[in-house]
Nucleic acid binder design. Structure first.
Lengths: 346, 346
DNA sequence: ATGAAAGCGCTAACAA
DNA sequence: TTGTTAGCGCTTTCAT
């Protein structure tokens, strides 16, 4: 008794094709999947039957039998943040080119959500591998993950075996950005984006680089110029800058911990009738497309998102296809300083 | 003989749980899925066994038996375009809230890619429903789709039964944008983004609205001010504007067919040393976040992407869960003009 | 090179 | 309320 509901109009199955072609299901499977050699004559018969019936393999059944979904999941904090959108733009075509579909989820940077996702992924066979760009996750969360799920972590460095990590050297990049401002002769360099009360370490690494640059230039850090902000978006940059502008001794330069933060800061400065960079120079972080067309164009730290994305896909698929027992690697992607109008002027 | 490879470390199956709990698989299934009532005592036994074995249901097997994947696919032309990124930001949480995962693909606006995707989706059981934001697809392509696959189309109007269409009234919106510029007293209003040689109709609808506004204001259209551009991004806006600025009689206002186009145009104007809006007023289309923080802030046509996204999810799931035999509906989402500095000044 | 048949792990009709 | 069992449609071992 056929118990189970079918949702389609009754598409042909592999068995139907086999019957029509007068061969066994095995042979049809061979023709479709190309595993074993098939006589040209047989193949022709099968293909004719496939065409006649309009047969399409049922991916669900194939997955169950084969033990893989052909899907990888990519989890980012925010989809509407250009940085992540541009990253996905690189990841998806690469995965598709290698025969995988991409499931996407976004967590709003919420650590609980990120944890729940990791738990949900465990042993459920939902997808073959996971590329995760965590914001709130800490070391222990990652240690408790399902070790059989191939995992690649993006972002700041995480010393942990068992999965790959891909990122840039945040400290060095932040140092370069700050050094650029100091090198321009600026002496009151503010930093917007520090996150003291969150688990995320990205912000702390950038602050570390900011301090290093000051130390190397022999300039003392004015701690009141380090402005904490909950997120890395335009509003945060705008509001952080407004705070700084209300002071009697505003900064003469600003390092925004993302391009969005920097753009928000620029807006606040210009709105006040001040000039960028003459009065206050601004540098961002990420090199999103927007910064190439804004006025002023935005100086920034550029990381090659294209190669970061393809690298992430290649690493996760290496794990997926090898059976997930590769030792974890620490991969660094190049970054470079891109100086534009917001620090150099026209 | 167990023929098939297992990829995990040998997770417990529902059968294992049943054996340990001393009940039948049916009962375990009931506990997990909550379909039928279960005695508290039995439930406790089963849950203990589940906990002891660390049992996680295999989603693949469940899908095959149940006939659904619990996934919907969303296909957009470009992921790194803020409009689509912000749209996805609305779609994904809604789908998740309703228990579905979201597969994403992007087509680069390529009609062949879009067609291939539609064909690939047909009868493959890859996902339960498809939300498609086509760029190059024409009427006939949509007619040839798998009619059993629940489909919701986003974007410009498509008169076709069998699936829902959600969009805004492009002609009216473009008319509003243009009328705003004409109402400001501008008489040489350029339009950037017309697409004469592409299948996409979005651009043509906007041009139609642009003409309507002129007709209603009794202003004749200078055809040379309608600038065709292959895409809707910043570069297109920039280059289109550069063309216009090289003329002896440049426009005094510009309607960009997307916010990105408008921002590119603004950049070209400011780079030339001209002022926005004093010399040339600019209005865009989409209301992306960027336009609220750029200098000048960008006037635009705002469409409620949040409700568009949730509406799309609700419509596709209505089709999925009802068995896909609902008649097609034409749904219009509200739009409104948002006037900011790029047309009004400070 | 092809056939026969045993699963993959779950759901749900039927029966008790 | 719970057990028995037949599939979902495919892949793949074993045998020919």
């Amino acid at each position: 008794m056929p118990p189970v509901r079918r949702l389609d109009g009754g598409g042909a199955t592999l068995r139907d094709v086999a019957a029509l072609a007068g061969v066994s299901p095995r042979t049809v499977s061979n023709v479709v999947g190309g595993y074993a050699a098939v006589t040209p004559a047989t193949r022709a018969k099968v293909e004719a039957a496939i065409a006649e019936l309009g047969y399409r393999p049922n991916v669900l059944a194939r997955n169950l039998a084969y033990g893989r979904t052909g899907q990888i999941a990519v989890v980012v904090p925010y989809l509407d943040t250009p940085y992540f959108a541009e990253l996905l733009q690189a990841i998806i075509p690469r995965a598709r080119a290698r025969g995988y579909d991409v499931l996407i989820d976004q967590t709003d940077g919420d650590a609980d959500h990120e944890r729940a996702l990791l738990a949900r992924a465990a042993g459920s066979f939902r997808y073959d591998g996971l590329i995760l760009s965590p914001l709130g996750l800490v070391q222990e969360d990652l240690a408790e993950r399902d070790p059989t799920l191939p995992l690649v972590v993006l972002g700041e460095r995480r010393a942990e075996p068992g999965f790959d990590h891909i990122g840039i050297d945040d400290v060095a990049a932040a140092r370069d950005a700050t050094a650029h401002l100091l090198g321009l002769g600026r002496r009151r360099v503010a930093a917007i984006g520090e996150q003291r009360d969150r688990e995320g370490v990205a912000a702390r690494l950038r602050t570390q680089g900011y301090r290093q640059a000051h130390a190397e230039a022999g300039v003392e850090v004015d701690e009141s110029l380090v402005v904490p902000r909950p997120r890395f978006n335009r509003r945060d940059g705008y509001e952080g800058m407004v705070q700084l502008l209300e002071r009697d001794d505003p900064p003469d330069a600003v390092f925004g911990y993302s391009d969005l933060v920097a753009q928000g800061a620029v807006r606040a400065i210009l709105e006040r009738g001040l000039r960028v960079p003459e009065d206050i120079a601004v540098i961002g972080y990420d090199d999103i497309d927007e910064g190439r067309y804004s006025t002023p164009t935005l100086s920034t730290i550029s990381q090659d998102r294209g190669s970061l994305g393809t690298l992430a896909v290649d690493r996760i698929l290496a794990r997926v296809e090898s059976g997930a027992q590769v030792p974890g690697q620490e991969l660094l992607v190049e970054h470079r300083l891109v100086a534009r109008e917001s620090t150099l002027g026209r």
